[in-house]
Simulated assay, not measured.
Amino acid sequence: MLLNRHILLISDDNYILGMIKGYCVAYDLTLEELSNHEILQENNINKSVKLIIVDLRKQKSSLTKPNLNLLHQISDGHHIPVCAILDPLQDQLSKDAPWIECFLKEPILEQLGNYLRTQFHHKPHSFPERRRKDRRTNTDRRRFFSSSQQASPSHAYVHSSPFSVPEKNDNTYFLGPFEINTNCKSVYLQDKNLGLTCKEFSLFSLLAADVERAFTADEIIQHLWPGTDRANKSDLYQYMHLLRKKVEKDPARPYWIINVKGVGYKLNITPALKESGQTLEYLNYKQASS
């Protein structure tokens, strides 16, 4: 089965159009185009595209709300991430439309290129990629040895695993083996972009917000579908299944996203350690799955 390699661009900006056309030619992607100077029609939008990019900078204000409402329905119903290009005066849109996966502002060129690479798993030049990987490796090594020196085998449980504290850097932070970008709403596991949808990222980021506790089904449902009573546990189970398919090596035997019986779901970053030697459990798992 061929991977979906279609992008839908909703824009009348020739600069943006030329930029994305060049990227599509370079990486053998298919580009579909729609104007943002008219109300979008559902039957004109291909529901099987991999990504929708909408340019809101010069769109009439009377068109923005109906067009975004339609894109919201399509994004949720067909699990298609949406990326919006804004100007500095449209900051409020990033708060009013949390379902949009990524917001881009000037300078757009580098941001858009990085975002497209995360969506289609394209790597930039090998030197910066290798430098980024080396920096993460050194960071993990420092955290591991620092924790190993402080660990005491006499303690029954150790809650400060070497991967428990996120290291934040602008819009990116590391949580155990995961690299999380809050701007583009992307998650990497062992240098691989998991390709999460907006809803999947929202679910993952909620679990990552407090790795010391389990979230109940009701808490997660309220977070994913705020202000509505139409969502239920069946919807949650569906998204949890989709997220585990991308995060877990074996979704039938989850390692990272676990059930806590009688409570809910938990991100298994800081497992309770009965002795300091068990910190090697993560390292062994990482080697086995690489």
Results as ranks from 00 to 15, higher is better:
T172P: 00
Q111K: 13
K105Q: 09
L194Y: 02
T118E: 13
I108R: 00
V263Q: 15
D218H: 11
K249I: 12
V263W: 14
A231S: 12
S94T: 08
T172R: 14
A84S: 07
C83Q: 06
D96L: 07
R213F: 06
E219H: 07
D250P: 05
R230V: 11
L56W: 00
L17I: 11
L112H: 04
S152H: 05
H241E: 04
G113F: 10
Q149C: 04
Q41G: 08
Q238I: 11
E110D: 12
F163I: 08
L283V: 15
D87L: 01
N69L: 11
K21P: 01
P98F: 07
L236T: 02
E32A: 10
T172E: 12
Q59C: 09
S202V: 03
P251T: 02
H122Q: 15
Q119E: 10
Y285H: 15
Q149P: 03
I108H: 00
D13R: 07
S148H: 09
L93E: 00
K185W: 03
K274S: 15
S48H: 06
H121Y: 14
D91A: 10
E167A: 09
V158M: 13
P271Y: 10
Q73S: 12
D218A: 15
S147T: 09
G227H: 06
T216A: 12
L2R: 07
Y115W: 10
T182W: 08
K246N: 03
T216I: 08
K185S: 14
F215K: 02
L9P: 06
I53G: 00
Q150R: 12
E248Q: 03
N171F: 14
R135V: 10
L104Q: 03
D134K: 14
L68V: 02
L71W: 02
T197R: 05
P153H: 04
A26R: 08
K95C: 05
L189S: 10
I108D: 01
Y15E: 04
P107M: 01
Q90N: 00
K249C: 09
D91V: 08
I180M: 03
F204G: 02
F163R: 11
G77L: 11
I52M: 03
D229Q: 14
I108E: 04
N284R: 15
D91L: 13
Q278R: 14
